[in-house]
Design a protein around this nucleic acid. Sequence first.
DNA 1: CTATTAGATGTTTTT
DNA 2: CATCTAATAG
Length: 691
Amino acid sequence: MTEAARPYPARERVVHARDAAANDALNDAQATAVAHAAGPLLVVAGAGTGKTRTLVHRVARLLADGTRPERILLLTFTRRAAHEMLSRVERLAGSDGRAVHGGTFHGTAHRLLRRFGPQAGVGSDFTIMDQGDAEDLMQLSRAHLGFGDKKKRFPKKETLHHVYSRHVNTEIPVPAILADEYPQFADHEEAFTRIFVDYTSRKQDRNLVDYDDLLLFWAMLVGDADAPLAEKIAGLYDHVLVDEYQDTNVLQSRILQGMARRHRNITVVGDDAQSIYSFRGATVRNILDFPREFAGATIVALEENYRSTQPILDVTNTLISRAEERYTKNLHTRRLGGEKPWLVTAHDEQAQTRFVVDRILELHEEGVLLREMAVLFRAGYMSADLEIELAARRVPFEKWGGLKFLEAAHVKDVLAFLRVAENPRDEVSWFRLLLLLPGVGETTARAAMDHLTASGWGPSAFAAYEAPARARAAHRALAQLLESLRSAADATEGALSREVGAIRKFYDDILRERYDRVEPRLADLDQLQIIAGGFPDRAAFLSALALEPPQSTQDLGFGSDSEDDALVLSTAHSAKGKEWDAVFVIWAVDGWIPLARALGDAEQVEEERRLLYVAMTRARNHLAVSYPLNVYDSRRSADYSIDQVSRFLDRGVREGMQRVVVEALKSPSESDPSTAPVIDLRALARGRFGA
DNA sequence: CTATTAGATGTTTTT
DNA sequence: CATCTAATAG
């Protein structure tokens, strides 16, 4: 199916449908960026200006100019972006494109660490902890040091981990973080530091690596200019290209400095107006200061928008013009026609839901594919009502982001068995397993772990442990299971799936005992078992789950009969970098966008504004922003509260939109929505060109 | 020490 | 609203 390798200038024959539809040739700015020979290059690319396309063409040009594909490193933000980028490079440059190295920062760091870690004191058989694991380990450190023994208020493990992670990713000193975000804990500074020291050495002893370590170790590996190893790693690549640069943090900037130090061939692409990941330590300073960090950088601005119609662009331009930004872009388009974006006032959530589904079905009838439409929202659970309605009306959909599959307790339980089998020193997983046993609580578990620490975590060490009488039977069964998992050198097809099967023989009964809603949980485990079957061994499976968790319900194999065409539901964050023919932004209410808790901090409010900007700029032809007026509020027992439209949709922004009002459903017909149209979509459709 | 239950609590975004 | 914490019974 892949085109044979062709020389670069043949692009007009190979370009993918949307590239061709947008524009046959690169525009001047894009061409400048693509042709840039060497040295640092900053591409400031507004929404929809062909950023990915430019990056892809630039890679193809480098290949055509003789750079070997494996000497190009293409860093993207999410695995979805990496996949799309690489397949487009492949389409453009043929099989060479497949050999280009690409992935997320964390994924690339993982690869390098497995390879070079042993030369730097990190065994190659480490286990990666996800955020939840890291928090659990933090809890063990906290308990070990005797903090939080029901004395005064002491920070929770989540808080501890957040402060630690923030410190590593931003390099802001711990006291400053506490003063800024947790003034109530400012006098615990010394405790924080002691816990972090213990946490760090605990990770080392247990052969564990957290997300932050992946970046930190990479930065340290390439940070010392004189170290031979740094030289070797930086020497792996001749060109480094980075997408979504506005969402990188200080650590990542340091990594890039190290990687590019010799050749300075670094290309970064980004849009300061779309910076939405500061909660992860990302700083817009990286893109703003790039010319200073990499002296002599060439700067190219992409300002022609190929995505949206002029009426949509008018509204989004106004929205973002309220923000202070440094790289002022003036986005324009040649797509002059089209309807104004809709501002939909719905009576309540149900009315909003009904409006969205009705309108989607209408567009679908007009010939828009479901997969060319998306509903975007601030937080994962905000689509719950919509999902129910879509299911009831048999509209296939796929949900991105906000997926908690791997965070579910029962899934983590099963994974803990595999992780202990893989890394017997994995303290977090041991602790989790032990607590599952009937008759074992915190004290017994700790005693067992002390035994393991003393006797070297060996496979037989656990079997030799003398459990208290009440837990003896469970202990014996677990020991046998672990023994069989470790000894089974079964490398045949589906071995991992059988391992999960063996674990479930032991675990399913515990699950039934401990949790409610047993059926869906068992179904999750069925899924996990199927996924496991696709991996060659435990190590690959566990690393992949930590670094590339399933991103959508479809990745998990649900809704298989509707794979071909399904509506996309996504958080605004997960929608970044994508575009759709029609976009619905729901819950545009003050308190959600911006989030109420962000209001105290001007910086955070600005980020919320950019988030709405990202969401709205995903639309090509149709955009509707909706908000419910009356919201049932369970916290205040005073039934309903009246919500206001997001402050970002101020008078000036609203002027470019057309108002639509959706009334509440009249109660007698509530039982059958299909016979009781609430709005006359046809009338709206007729009137929508009239401004 | 563990298991169970009642009560509080605090709700984002992702690698 | 479901998850985590604290308190108490077994």
